[in-house]
């Protein structure tokens, strides 16, 4: 058996803030420009990748977040086992990449997903993020790619004061410490 090690594996609570690392979940990077690509993804997952910037689409199982006009990230809501990832990745890779209509890349371990919850969530982000959350925070499903403490992140607004934040794994530890350090003052 190989041991699974996620970078943080922890949950912390502060005044009206809870930060948790969520793992393991499936994350796939999807890229494509052709109409066939959209149809194929829609057929396989029963969700169409959103074409409006800064938005997402989803169902009970999956979310697809807009990253750029030809790029999306898909992630699952449930923690799932490795076999599922392999299966989904292979299936989509065959349908999309091998059919030359786009690309499918497994990024489950490339991104670490943190969940931040609580009334002070957006104030916490404002300590290091230049993004204007005034409209974002009231828009369920909104997506923002921006910087938090100079580190690239993808932020997905799940619910009122409840968001998922993706950070590249090698930065996860540093960002985690930084978020925790910031939270002390709330």
């Amino acid at each position: 058996m190989l041991n699974y090690n996620s970078p943080i594996n922890d949950q912390k609570e502060y005044s009206e803030i809870r930060i948790t690392e969520v793992e393991p979940i499936i994350k796939l990077n999807l890229r494509g420009k052709k109409r066939d690509f959209m149809t194929k993804i829609g057929k396989e997952l029963s969700i169409i990748p959103p074409s409006d910037p800064n938005t997402s689409s989803g169902n009970e199982k999956f979310n697809i977040l807009w990253l750029s006009p030809d790029e999306w990230i898909l992630y699952s809501n449930d923690k799932s086992d490795l076999n599922n990832t392999n299966f989904l990745e292979e299936k989509l890779f065959n349908e999309v990449s091998k059919s030359k209509i786009g690309s499918i890349t497994n990024v489950s371990d490339h991104w670490t997903m943190l969940n931040i919850k609580g009334k002070n969530t957006f104030d916490l982000l404002s300590t290091g993020c230049p993004f204007n959350f005034n409209d974002f925070k009231n828009t369920k499903g909104a997506v923002a790619q921006t910087l938090v403490n100079h580190i690239d992140v993808i932020i997905h607004n799940k619910d009122l004061n409840n968001l998922n934040l993706f950070v590249r794994r090698s930065f996860a530890n540093h960002l985690w410490s930084w978020l925790n350090d910031s939270s002390r003052f709330f």
């Binding site: 910037p53 800064n54 750029s68 230049p130 993004f131 204007n132 921006t146 910087l147 100079h150």
Partner: peptide
């Protein structure tokens, strides 16, 4: 032109 108004530090 794709994402809307953002801070210069993102560019």
């Amino acid at each position: 032109p794709y994402c809307g108004e953002r801070d210069q530090s993102e560019f």
